[in-house]
């Protein structure tokens, strides 16, 4: 048994055989948004360091951050922050042993998607108004 061929054994089916389902898709999105938030974090810390460096460098960085591309990144990060927070709360709920019934889990997934978009729109509106 020590020298059996282990190189050509059949693989178990993976992502390609599954239709995208709500719990699976929303969980994958939680990982993408969580890891993607490093971009917004780096932009924010760069902006903060620029403010500490002095008015001249701040004006340069603030100009980039408040350009349409910068604002697009920040708005995207805001949605990612809301999405990852809501999806994270759902994972904490699941970890406590609740909400695992299929119908409930799917409704929670839709709530996370819709809730994150709604919260982002409301936050952007409040920021624009303030």
């Amino acid at each position: 048994m020590a020298d059996v061929n282990r190189g050509s054994r059949p693989l178990s089916p993976h992502l390609q055989v599954y239709r995208l389902q709500i719990p699976m898709t929303t969980s994958i999105l939680a990982r993408i948004t969580g890891n993607g938030l490093i971009v917004g974090s780096l932009v924010f810390v760069w902006w903060l360091v620029a403010a500490a460096a002095g008015p001249d460098y701040y004006a340069f960085v603030n100009g980039i951050v408040t350009s349409w591309l910068g604002l697009l990144v920040l708005a995207g990060s805001l949605w990612a922050l809301w999405y990852h927070s809501l999806a994270g709360l759902r994972h904490l709920l699941w970890d406590s042993g609740h909400g695992l019934e299929l119908a409930t889990a799917e409704r929670l997934g839709l709530a996370v998607v819709i809730g994150s978009v709604a919260a982002t729109v409301v936050t952007l509106a409040l920021l624009a108004w303030a």
């Binding site: 490093i38 974090s41 780096l42 924010f44 810390v45 903060l48 360091v49 403010a51 500490a52």
Partner: peptide, 17 residues
């Protein structure tokens, strides 16, 4: 390195400000 470096840079900037 990236995560704790970013945290350190942020803390330094806040302390300076």
């Amino acid at each position: 390195l990236l995560s704790y470096g970013t945290a350190a840079a942020g803390l330094y900037a806040i302390a300076r400000l």
